[in-house]
Structure formats: C-alpha cells, structure tokens
Computed example of a mutant assay.
Amino acid sequence: MSYEPGSLDCRLLIDAKHHLELALASLSGLPQSDHIQRQLKAVHQQLEGMHDLKRSMQVDDA
C-alpha cells in the first residue's frame, strides 16, 4: 500500500483502515464471522468518510 498522508490525522486514519483490512482478511477464513465482518466494514466506511473530510479540508487550506 502506497500513500502519502498529508497530516498526522490522515496517517492515523490510514493506519486504522489498514488494520481493519488485515482483520477482515483474517476473519474471511473463519466460519460464522459474517456479522463481525459487516461491522468491521461499516467502521472502515466511517473511517473512510473521516479521511475524505480531512483530505478535503487540506485541499481547502492549500
């Protein structure tokens, strides 16, 4: 994964999303983990939304 975070907040959000992606990959092999996977995907989407906001704020500041 290549990325250039524009701020510490972006870096933290990128790292959090990456860790969720790793957890999802690990859970994919476990039976009956669908509910947990859906919850983690929802959290990932929330983090992505936060990251989008941070990125748009950085563009506005530029």
Rank of each mutant, 00 (worst) to 15 (best):
A62H: 06
A42S: 07
G49S: 10
L53D: 12
A42G: 03
V59E: 07
L27W: 01
D61C: 13
H35V: 14
S28R: 02
A23E: 03
H35A: 15
A23M: 10
K41E: 12
L53R: 14
L47E: 03
V43F: 01
H35S: 14
L40D: 04
L24Q: 00
H19C: 08
P5Y: 04
L47N: 03
I36Y: 04
D61A: 15
P5R: 00
Q37K: 13
I14S: 09
L22V: 05
L53I: 14
M57R: 15
H19L: 14
S33V: 08
A16P: 03
Y3H: 15
R55C: 14
A25C: 04
L22G: 02
K41W: 06
K17S: 12
H18M: 09
S2L: 09
S33L: 06
C10W: 02
R55H: 13
H18L: 09
M57L: 15
Q37L: 09
P5D: 01
S33R: 04
D61F: 13
E48N: 05
S26V: 01
A16I: 01
S2D: 08
A62R: 07
L40P: 07
S2M: 06
Q37E: 13
I14G: 07
V43P: 02
L12T: 00
A16R: 04
H19G: 05
M1H: 11
I14P: 06
L8E: 12
I14T: 12
Q45Y: 11
D60C: 12
L27V: 03
K54P: 05
Q39Y: 05
M57I: 15
H18D: 08
E48R: 07
K17I: 13
R55G: 14
M50T: 09
K41H: 10
Q58P: 04
S56I: 11
S7Y: 02
Q45W: 11
M57K: 15
L30Q: 06
E21T: 00
M50V: 10
V43Y: 00
H18Q: 08
Q39F: 05
L20W: 01
H44R: 11
L24T: 01
D60M: 11
H18K: 11
R11V: 07
E48S: 04
D34P: 04
M1C: 13
Q37A: 13
C10I: 05
M50S: 07
M57T: 14
A62G: 06
K41I: 05
H51L: 15
P31G: 04
M50L: 12
E48D: 07
V43C: 04
Q45S: 14
S26F: 00
Q32V: 11
L8G: 07
A16W: 00
G49N: 12
D61S: 15
L24I: 01
V43R: 03
L8Y: 05
L24N: 00
S26A: 05
E21G: 00
Q45N: 11
P31H: 06
S56P: 03
P5A: 08
A23N: 02
G49T: 07
L40W: 09
Q37S: 12
Q58C: 06
L53T: 13
Y3M: 13
L40E: 09
K54V: 14
C10V: 07
D52S: 14
Q58I: 10
D9W: 10
V43E: 00
V43K: 03
E21A: 01
Y3D: 12
R11M: 09
M57G: 13
D52Y: 08
D52T: 14
Y3T: 14
L40Q: 07
A42Q: 08
H19Y: 12
A62L: 13
L30E: 10
H19R: 07
V59C: 09
C10A: 11
H18T: 08
